[in-house]
Design a protein around this nucleic acid. Structure first.
Length: 343
DNA sequence: AATCCGGGGAA
DNA sequence: TTCCCAGGATT
């Protein structure tokens, strides 16, 4: 029996019930695929439900404010996905009359949709034989076929796409794609794969040669930048504070945070620095909230963060009622502080 | 071809 | 700690 037949058979008796599998309309599939980029199903599931509930159609999403979309996305990370999601919803409504492109190349033109997502949507919704290649596919194919080409190289990307394309079930490409990913996610796992009772045990090259744990091959290691953040938590007598929008490129674009003083090292900020930050405001006192900086790890940055609580009589124009801060999208580390501090 | 972009769960 | 997750955009 062929690889493809074995895989489809395995899928039919092992697939999980997931909400987006109950439908084939491009809006739901698109939404689920964007949410699931670099995100485990268990983590993305709640967000999918919330988005479908809040924005049932692409028209509802297009009508929304970006700030509200980011608020619903809060905590999921990679926020450019949310900004592009909103941007593309508007684009589909305004220039495609609310109708999604119905093939791979048309989908590829949309912001936030690359080869993987275009393949997923076109295969599931339109039965177009486009093979998806995600982390699961790299792992399964590299093991079963014994491929040592690094998956994070341009040659590897081409090689695995070509192989998956050769294997795809052209009669049911969407089922094949989901089967391959499901098999990688639940059976051919990175750690403790179920090799002892596997439908490919008789032909798997990695299993026969005992290379399973060496595959897939991934080269290089990501360099991590250290940064030192000092957040100024202003608190006025009339229960207001200040949150600012991050508008520059980089992490957390268009999310809100307390006024930030970034330093080159772990040296502490001074009262004078705080005053210089707000020339028009009379600061009464500044006390550190966490003496020991908390470490917040991102994929390319390690942030050492200290919160400083600054008391003042009034905040003027920029003052935001503390009762309203939970309406704004914030990085999870800011959210955690707000919950813990409880003003 | 490299680098950037989050947060969380598992071992 | 380290790895990696239904990747894509930018440089």
């Amino acid at each position: 029996m062929s690889f493809t037949s074995k895989l489809i058979d395995w899928y039919q008796s092992n697939k999980r019930e997931l909400p987006w599998r109950a439908r084939k309309d491009p809006y739901a599939i698109w939404l689920s695929e964007i949410i699931l980029q670099q995100t485990r199903i268990e983590q993305g599931l709640k967000y999918y439900e919330a988005f479908i509930e809040t924005y049932p159609t692409v028209f509802d999403l297009a009508k929304a404010e970006e700030e509200d979309v980011l608020k619903l996305w809060q905590g999921l990370g990679y926020y450019s996905r949310a900004r592009n999601l909103h941007h593309t919803a508007i684009s589909i409504v305004e220039t495609h009359k609310g109708i999604f492109p119905e093939n791979h190349s048309g989908l590829m033109k949309l912001k936030g949709i690359g080869d993987y997502t275009a393949s997923a949507i076109s295969s599931i919704c339109y039965n177009e034989p486009q093979a998806v290649v995600d982390g699961n596919v790299y792992r399964v194919l590299s093991r079963v076929f014994g491929i040592f080409t690094p998956i994070n190289s341009s040659q590897g990307a081409k090689e695995f796409k070509t192989l998956a394309q050769k294997l795809i079930d052209t009669k049911q490409p969407g089922e094949f794609n989901q089967a391959l990913m499901e098999f990688g996610a639940t059976h051919c796992k990175p750690q403790n794969p179920g090799c002892e009772h596997c439908v490919f045990s008789s032909t798997c090259v990695a299993l026969k040669k005992e290379f399973v744990m060496q595959l897939p091959v991934k080269t290089g290691k990501t360099k991590v930048r250290k940064r030192y953040f000092n957040y100024l938590v202003l608190v006025s007598d009339d229960e207001k504070t200040i949150l600012e929008k991050r508008t520059e490129k980089g992490i957390w674009k268009n999310l809100y945070q307390f006024p930030l003083i970034e330093k080159e090292n772990s040296s502490k900020i001074t009262f004078e620095e705080v005053e210089k930050c707000f020339p028009e405001i009379e600061i009464d006192s500044v006390t550190v909230h966490n003496e020991i900086p908390l470490t917040h790890k991102l994929s390319h940055q390690h942030l050492q963060i200290q919160f400083w609580v600054a008391s003042t009589a009034a905040l003027g124009e920029k003052g935001l009622p503390i009762s309203k801060i939970n309406e704004l999208p914030v990085p999870i580390v800011i959210h955690n502080f707000i919950v813990d501090f409880s003003f």
